[in-house]
């Protein structure tokens, strides 16, 4: 973790914040996008129904739930940390919201108030959990892998304890809008996905907070010496992914119309995969929100295309593995070329 690079492609040691702005357009940065475009063209001619409006809305809807968390994960990885609790968190917050709604409506409260209180509670717990993770990382030097491993077990256990292993279905019909509703024919989740993308993209490129995250991920000690509040950055970033997990949990609960403790299994890997495909380094200091956006779409389009083509599930696993490996090799070759000058 010795580099700090907002381009996600370059090299070198931690540079002053003002010098980290990347050129607006560099053709070699867009290899993945070019491959994705080629795949889109191929699928448009081979996969039935691929090049239709409805299918593109499917792709956006499918990408949204993991994508939102992936934007949070991008910051976590840039920071040189990891969060493997997001899948379990998704289940826990979905179940917590369902159980709170169920209990309060049974006690005579309106569904609207019950859901609002449930949502506030979920956000509160997610933020506190993230702050705690960031704090123990900074003050006690406990790796976030370990802390979020504990959260992973706690959240999954909590989801089962809250529901007794049975799906909880307390929601009124209007709540299902968040998971299956549309505005002007565009899924609601797609709006949230794009909104979160724009916000996180802006934060990463144009704010002190975003630049500081790269700096901390590149070299925390240098960042501290240059006056960056490393503890604050760590706590904020770990809380941010918690907030995005809650957002996703609300939409998943709405989509499946229940709080279910079994949801989100292995989502952490899907989310990390999207980031890696998008060029985010697991070593910290490197990565772009745009890359993650492309990575999420890449995964979603590949899965969509393979289902449309009726490709066997087992081959889909192989295709996903090749995709990850291919993306990593491309970035590695690019990095080697960059080092050679």
């Amino acid at each position: 973790m010795t580099t700090s690079d907002t381009t996600g492609k370059g090299k070198g040691s931690f540079a002053p914040l003002a010098a980290t702005r990347r050129p607006f357009f560099k053709l070699s940065d867009f290899v993945l996008e070019a491959i994705l475009l080629a795949i889109i063209l191929l699928l448009a001619f081979t996969a039935p129904g691929f090049a239709t409006w409805d299918n593109w809305m499917n792709i956006l809807r499918n990408a949204a739930m993991t994508g939102i968390i992936a934007f949070g994960m991008t910051f976590v990885l840039i920071l040189g940390e990891i969060d493997i609790s997001v899948g379990s968190g998704l289940a826990f917050f979905g179940c917590l919201l369902a159980v709170v709604t169920d209990s309060m409506t049974t006690a005579g409260w309106s569904a609207e108030i019950s859901i609002v209180i449930g949502v506030v509670l979920c956000f509160g717990i997610a933020i506190l959990a993230g702050m705690f993770t960031g704090w123990v990382r900074h003050v006690l030097a406990v790796p976030t892998f370990i802390t979020t491993l504990a959260w992973m077990a706690a959240f999954r256990g909590g989801a089962y304890l809250l529901t007794g292993s049975f799906p909880v279905t307390p929601y009124p019909d209007w709540f299902f809008f968040f998971g299956s509703g549309a505005i002007f024919g565009i899924p609601f989740q797609a709006f949230v996905f794009l909104l979160v993308f724009i916000i996180t993209w802006f934060i990463s490129r144009y704010t002190v907070f975003g630049k500081s995250a790269y700096a901390v991920g590149g070299n925390a000690e240098s960042a501290r010496l240059s006056g960056i509040n490393v503890l604050g950055i760590r706590m904020a970033v770990m809380s941010m992914i918690g907030v995005f997990t809650v957002l996703s949990a609300i939409m998943v609960s709405s989509q499946i119309q229940a709080g279910n403790p079994t949801v989100g299994v292995t989502w952490e890997f899907t989310v990390i995969t999207a980031c890696v495909i998008g060029g985010v380094s697991l070593m910290g200091g490197k990565g772009r929100v745009w890359g993650t956006f492309v990575g999420v779409l890449f995964l979603s389009i590949m899965l969509n295309g393979m289902t449309l083509l009726n490709i066997d599930e087992y081959w889909q696993y192989v295709a996903r593995a090749l995709l990850i490996l291919g993306a990593v090799l491309i970035y590695q070759v690019q990095a080697m070329n960059a080092r050679r000058g």
């Binding site: 299918n55 998943v252 499946i256 229940a258 969509n304 289902t307 449309l308 009726n310």
Partner: peptide
């Protein structure tokens, strides 16, 4: 298509309906 859980099965079923 294959998926044991609802949150993934809904995506695959939607894709199948599109195809």
């Amino acid at each position: 298509a294959s998926s044991p859980v609802a949150e993934e099965a809904i995506k695959k079923a939607a894709d199948i309906i599109t195809a």
